[in-house]
Amino acid sequence: MKKMIMMVVAMLSMTMTSFAENENADLTLNTEVYDMTVNLRKLAVALDMTSDQMESVGDIHRMFCAEMMMAAHANKDERTVLMDKAIKKDLRYMRYVLDQKQYHKYLMLLNTTLQNRGLK
């Protein structure tokens, strides 16, 4: 009887460990999906930006990445709201810095990135 109880306790502890590992894996995967860092030099080449635009876009993008990481760590209910706010804010600032052709291309790149990561 004592051996049976010990075996059940051991099985329960292994199951609980497995659940904890899955939760940590989900959090890590979730954080990776919301990591929006890009190579700013490649983005500058793709959008044909000037040096002033590169500096401004770099500042805007760092702020966007920080807001997306905050969304990643938020509750499930708040996550989509925070993500939408971050995207709208990023697009509003980018529209101010980029010209119409650059903005259109940036919008296309951002939408593709969000779709590939399963966020839209």
Rank of each mutant, 00 (worst) to 15 (best):
residue 1 M to E: 13
residue 1 M to S: 14
residue 3 K to H: 15
residue 5 I to H: 12
residue 5 I to Y: 06
residue 6 M to R: 08
residue 8 V to W: 02
residue 8 V to R: 07
residue 9 V to P: 01
residue 9 V to L: 10
residue 10 A to M: 14
residue 10 A to K: 02
residue 10 A to C: 05
residue 12 L to K: 04
residue 13 S to G: 03
residue 14 M to G: 08
residue 17 T to L: 15
residue 18 S to E: 01
residue 20 A to Q: 09
residue 23 E to W: 06
residue 23 E to N: 04
residue 26 D to Q: 11
residue 28 T to W: 07
residue 29 L to A: 13
residue 30 N to D: 11
residue 31 T to D: 02
residue 31 T to L: 06
residue 31 T to Y: 05
residue 34 Y to H: 10
residue 34 Y to N: 02
residue 35 D to K: 04
residue 35 D to P: 01
residue 39 N to F: 04
residue 39 N to L: 13
residue 42 K to T: 07
residue 42 K to R: 12
residue 45 V to T: 14
residue 45 V to I: 14
residue 46 A to I: 05
residue 47 L to F: 04
residue 47 L to H: 03
residue 49 M to E: 11
residue 49 M to Y: 07
residue 52 D to A: 11
residue 53 Q to F: 07
residue 54 M to G: 11
residue 55 E to D: 14
residue 56 S to M: 13
residue 56 S to P: 01
residue 58 G to W: 04
residue 59 D to Y: 12
residue 62 R to D: 10
residue 62 R to S: 11
residue 63 M to H: 03
residue 64 F to K: 00
residue 64 F to C: 10
residue 64 F to M: 03
residue 65 C to Q: 03
residue 65 C to A: 07
residue 66 A to E: 13
residue 67 E to V: 02
residue 68 M to D: 02
residue 68 M to F: 00
residue 69 M to K: 14
residue 72 A to C: 02
residue 72 A to G: 01
residue 73 H to G: 05
residue 73 H to N: 10
residue 75 N to M: 07
residue 75 N to T: 14
residue 75 N to L: 09
residue 75 N to V: 02
residue 76 K to F: 06
residue 77 D to S: 08
residue 77 D to F: 08
residue 78 E to I: 00
residue 79 R to W: 00
residue 81 V to I: 11
residue 83 M to N: 04
residue 84 D to T: 14
residue 84 D to E: 15
residue 84 D to L: 11
residue 86 A to P: 01
residue 89 K to H: 14
residue 91 L to N: 12
residue 91 L to C: 07
residue 91 L to T: 09
residue 94 M to W: 02
residue 95 R to C: 10
residue 95 R to N: 13
residue 98 L to E: 00
residue 99 D to Y: 09
residue 100 Q to M: 14
residue 100 Q to S: 10
residue 103 Y to H: 06
residue 106 Y to F: 12
residue 107 L to S: 12
residue 108 M to E: 13
residue 113 T to W: 06
residue 113 T to G: 05
residue 115 Q to E: 15
residue 115 Q to T: 10
residue 116 N to P: 01
residue 119 L to P: 00
residue 119 L to K: 01
residue 119 L to Y: 02
